[in-house]
């Protein structure tokens, strides 16, 4: 992306997308919360999905992306 290359933002230069950057910022802000708000907000960080790349009509190996904060029980 040309716009990404021309970007002046330091996080863009570091190869982050806007969503990655904003979710990192959100994590930091959440970390500043006090109890009991922290335990309420922490589950919003949880990520879980499985992705399978397909090339030439054949599936590759499934990759599980799982970021579950220790505070959150499955």
């Amino acid at each position: 992306m040309s716009a990404a290359a021309n970007s002046a933002s330091y996080w863009r230069i570091a190869g982050m997308s806007y969503l990655k950057y904003s979710s990192m910022c959100a994590e930091v802000v959440r970390g500043c919360l006090k109890e009991p708000f922290l335990t309420k907000a922490k589950p919003r960080e949880a990520v879980y999905f499985k992705s399978v790349k397909w090339t030439d009509g054949k599936p590759g190996k499934p990759v599980v992306t799982e970021v579950i904060p220790p505070e959150v029980t499955k």
């Binding site: 979710s23 919003r44 960080e45 949880a46 990520v47 999905f49 499985k50 399978v52 030439d56």
Partner: peptide
């Protein structure tokens, strides 16, 4: 349509869906 498939995303709502999950899927 296997020749058109690039990615398959599964189990997004296995745990309650968060915006964080949606953004990581978006990055994919």
């Amino acid at each position: 349509y296997s020749h058109l498939l690039r990615n398959v995303i599964l189990d997004v709502t296995k745990i309650p869906l968060t915006f964080a999950t949606a953004s990581m899927v978006t990055d994919v």
